[in-house]
C-alpha cells in the first residue's frame, strides 16, 4: 500500500496510539467523543489534509495534517460490548489528536 509514501508522519502503520482525552466545547472536531481516551493501532496513513478545525473557520493556509486510520478493539471501546472479542472499529483521526501509546 502506497498511502503514506513521501509523507513525514509521526506514526507508521502498526504503531500503538492513544487518542487524546480532550473535550473542547467549541469547534468543528472530527474526532468522535466515544473514541477519545482510547488506544488503538495505526492501520494506514490516509494522506495529508487541511485540519477541519481550521478549515471550518475559513483557514486554508499553513501546514496540512497527517490523517490516519486507526483500528480499535470493540471490547476496549465499549466495556459492555457483546459481540466477538475480535470485532473492531476503524476511525480516521488527525495526527494532532494522537499520542504514542505503550
Amino acid at each position: 500500500m502506497s498511502w503514506g509514501a513521501g509523507i513525514a508522519s509521526r506514526f507508521k502503520p502498526g504503531d500503538k496510539v492513544h487518542v487524546a482525552a480532550r473535550f473542547p466545547t467549541k469547534g468543528h472536531i472530527r474526532t468522535p467523543h466515544y473514541i477519545r481516551g482510547k488506544t488503538g493501532v495505526v492501520e494506514r496513513i490516509c494522506g495529508q489534509y487541511r485540519n477541519p478545525e481550521e478549515l471550518a473557520f475559513g483557514q486554508y493556509v499553513g501546514a496540512q495534517q497527517v490523517l490516519y486510520r486507526v483500528r480499535f478493539p470493540q471490547t476496549h471501546v465499549w466495556p459492555d460490548y457483546r459481540g466477538n472479542p475480535k470485532d473492531t472499529v476503524e476511525i480516521e483521526i488527525f495526527e494532532h489528536w494522537l499520542e504514542p501509546a505503550k
Binding site: 477541519p52 459481540g83 473492531t88 480516521e92
Partner: peptide, 9 residues
C-alpha cells in the same frame, strides 16, 4: 465484524 466510521476525508 469491522465497523468503519467515516469521520474525515
Amino acid at each position: 465484524v469491522r465497523v468503519h466510521d467515516s469521520t474525515a476525508d
